[in-house]
Design a protein around this nucleic acid. Structure first.
Lengths: 219, 219
DNA sequence: CTTAAAATATGAGATATCTCACATTATTGT
DNA sequence: ACAATAATGTGAGATATCTCATATTTTAAG
């Protein structure tokens, strides 16, 4: 992790207008390498982060050794906001998938931050969307088999007609075993929906995927 | 649904201190009978509700006809806060399980409400907890079989050593089929963990349930 | 009190998903 | 360039969970 000083993003940062005090005096710019842990599971961070560039993954480990990939974090999302609000919150692990640049506001400003109505409203909106997405994930995970959820995931993450996500990541994300993920992918290939092309999969029949994903229909 | 006028709860309501304007001038007291729908799925409400007494259930219907019972709503929780924040939010259905009394703030006050820092902070905290709970539900639902999740649910809802939740509700809540729920309950009976007593189940071996629930271990 | 609707119950067979064991290929750190 | 680690791939058998069909009992509505 690296702290960038005197970087232009600091003066004209996208959060400053949410605060009534001169946030640029305390805000920092942190840069993480790919694969670094921004937050270690169980250890609350000392900053509220706001991602400017890059993506990361939120993980948690269960007693039985299973690992859940709870979500991807994208630019313009917060990290550490739940620990800021509730000191007792159990921190999930956050690991970068790419190089990540983010704004970092030290928790020492907690009281000031949590009194700014513009910021709080922004945070409410963020949390509301976060809840809504997680609720959808929860309910679809119970109501539909992998076939449908994977179809949606492939459509969401494909680059043109090429699907190339890492299996290990995907099975943590969709909450199924590696074995079963491969099994359903093989099924898609048999049905001529996908075609394995070396290390990638090529989408042969996008309509079929859309049909499978369509039944999830979350508004 | 009934609107109670001039009720003492209105003057000394637990929300008034969160607002900088005289909320008691606009706040109402609504009372719903058992089984009534406070919010119809897909139809945003016109009020922000705050439950004072009673409990309710949040439902959503999937394309394939499956119904998810997303959560129980307890006293001192909000209803309709997500629609208040995001007009585009798809409303889930909310049905009372008992008689429910709640404070109702008309959406016409939206702009005033969403500028009050104390209220916003309270709402952030509420949403943060809501997200955290849903995240736990999501990840445990994927990582553990019904056996463990049901054990926890029985411990949470039992009245002394008597478990008497409705099967239909429970299988919507835990996201499994009715058939499978009965199957696992029968297993518990075989293992002498429960004993069916007419319409109820009696807990014979609480330690066994605690052991099963223990592996969920969410901090 | 009667009837319709909801909830409970059970069997049997299908399917989705998991575990484990093991082999092969990338990727990464030194 | 090499070794260690991570990721991929496959088979076989077990288990969790679902679907459907059908019967009985309880609850709610008129």
């Amino acid at each position: 992790m690296q702290i960038l000083k005197n970087h232009p993003s600091l003066q004209h940062n996208p959060l400053s207008h949410l605060f009534s005090f001169p946030i640029h005096e305390v805000i920092q710019l942190h840069q993480f390498e790919r694969g670094e842990w921004i937050v270690r599971e169980g250890t609350p961070p000392n900053y509220l982060f706001y991602v400017l560039e890059g993506t990361a993954k939120i993980y948690m480990t269960h007693q039985n050794g299973k690992i859940s990939l709870l979500n991807f974090i994208m630019p313009f999302e917060f990290i550490g906001e739940m620990e800021l609000l509730q000191a007792s919150f159990y921190s999930k692990g956050v690991q970068t998938s790419t190089k990540v640049t983010c704004l970092a506001i030290p928790y020492t400003c907690r009281d000031q931050i949590l009194e700014d109505p513009l910021f709080l409203r922004h945070l409410c909106l963020f949390l509301s969307e976060k809840t809504a997405k997680m609720t959808i994930k929860y309910s679809t995970s119970l109501a539909f088999p992998l076939e449908n959820r994977l179809a949606e995931f492939i459509l969401q993450t494909a680059d043109g007609d090429i699907y190339k996500e890492k299996h290990v990541t995907v099975c943590d994300y969709l909450g199924v075993s590696y074995r079963h993920l491969l099994h359903v992918l093989a099924q898609f290939c048999e049905q001529q929906i996908l075609k394995k092309d070396g290390r990638y999969y090529r989408i042969l029949n996008e309509e079929a995927l859309q049909k499978l994903a369509g039944v999830l229909q979350h508004q």
